[in-house]
Simulated assay, not measured.
Amino acid sequence: MENQQLPPPLPPAQPLSPQDERTWAMLAHLLALTGLMIPFGSIIAPLVVWQVYKDRSAYVTYHAKESLNFHITIALAVVACIILMIILVGLFLIWVVGVAALVLTVVAGIKANNGEYYRYPLTIRFIS
Rank of each mutant, 00 (worst) to 15 (best):
L76G: 14
H63I: 02
V96G: 12
T23G: 01
R22D: 05
I43T: 11
K65M: 13
P11E: 04
R119P: 01
A101P: 07
E116T: 11
A112H: 08
A75Y: 05
A45D: 11
V96D: 14
L30F: 01
G35C: 03
K54V: 14
Q5A: 13
P8A: 13
T34N: 02
M26D: 14
V107S: 10
A45K: 03
A45F: 10
Y117P: 00
Y118G: 00
I43D: 12
V60I: 12
R56M: 13
T73A: 11
L84C: 06
T123V: 02
Y62K: 14
A45L: 09
G35M: 01
S57N: 08
V99E: 07
T34I: 11
I82Y: 03
L104V: 09
K54I: 15
L84V: 03
A108S: 14
V78M: 11
C81S: 01
A64D: 06
T123F: 00
A32Q: 02
I87K: 00
A28E: 05
T61D: 13
E116Y: 02
N114T: 04
S67I: 05
P46I: 12
G35S: 01
A112F: 04
T34D: 06
P12L: 07
P9L: 00
G109N: 06
N3Q: 13
H71K: 08
A100D: 12
P8D: 04
